[in-house]
Design a protein around this nucleic acid. Structure first.
Ligand code: ZN
Ligand code: ZN
Ligand code: ZN
Ligand code: ZN
Lengths: 133, 133
DNA sequence: TGAGTTATGTTATAACATAACATAACAAGC
DNA sequence: GCTTGTTATGTTATGTTATAACATAACTCA
């Protein structure tokens, strides 16, 4: 039997997957309020925190939004490429590059715990779509 | 003669430099309200946007805060290492690494325009200070 | 000057996030 | 079964960040 919390997490994940794009916590809340009118922000944020913890969802710090993880294994920090045109997010996994980053900052004694890499730009299909100019 | 806007930018930059650490727009506003009680959020955000544009200030997406640029000539995007203990931010410039990132994401046709790299962890002095445990 | 334009000020509100407390569920010992 | 303590979840309220919308001031150039 799924606990209530797990049920909320599942619902949140479904909502995120349905969007397939970065979605704010409040947008998710409004989605879930279709079936559960009284659900409140803390419930959403708790579920999102658990999903992020599990690696099933990524938080986009530069958008204050969340997106469902698209890669098979959810146990690595991802490089997130964000199309500013259509909102699509691509994930890239590059452990070597993260190690480079860790080493680079370690030169001054810094101990890296959490890497945030978000790249804004334009995705391939939007680039093609806009090539007519 | 400095325009009003430039004057606000100068004041904001002074406030940021005085803190030397990540500072929220509202904290800066409260600082400036000592001498200009009616200054409002849009004024602060406009000044911050201009300063970020000029490279004199970095925005920390993962903290919703701003910090004065600490490198002499800052026309490269910086890698920002953030100590979660004391709040100190170190800047690292690594054009090669950024190029790697750009190339990596370009494989799928993505055109990178803006790199956001923020690394959370613990700075050298906090690490030493906490070594007694 | 006076129309057109841009910059700045001002008010109000939107959007994001969490503090603080209440209640419910559950488990351990009696 | 009943307490009792603990954790999970719900609920209310509020704190924090950011921008929309409009008003006014300054500046430009015929
Ligand atoms: Zn992922
Ligand atoms: Zn796109
Ligand atoms: Zn800098
Ligand atoms: Zn530190």
């Amino acid at each position: 039997m799924a606990s209530r919390g797990e049920q909320v997490q599942a619902n949140v994940l479904v909502a995120l997957l349905a969007h397939g794009k970065p979605t704010s916590a409040y947008k998710i809340m409004r989605d879930l309020q279709d079936g559960q009118p009284k659900i409140a922000p803390p419930t959403i944020y708790r579920a999102l925190a658990a999903l992020v913890e599990q690696g099933k969802v990524h938080r986009l710090e530069s958008l204050n939004a969340f997106v469902a993880c698209q890669c098979a294994h959810h146990d690595h920090p991802a490089i997130l490429s964000i199309c500013d045109d259509c909102g699509a997010v691509e994930e890239t996994v590059a452990p070597k590059l993260l190690n480079q980053l860790t080493r680079l900052t370690k030169k001054s004694g810094f101990a890296a715990m959490r890497h945030i890499i978000e790249i804004h730009g334009r995705c391939a299909s939007c680039k093609n779509a806009g090539a007519q100019s």
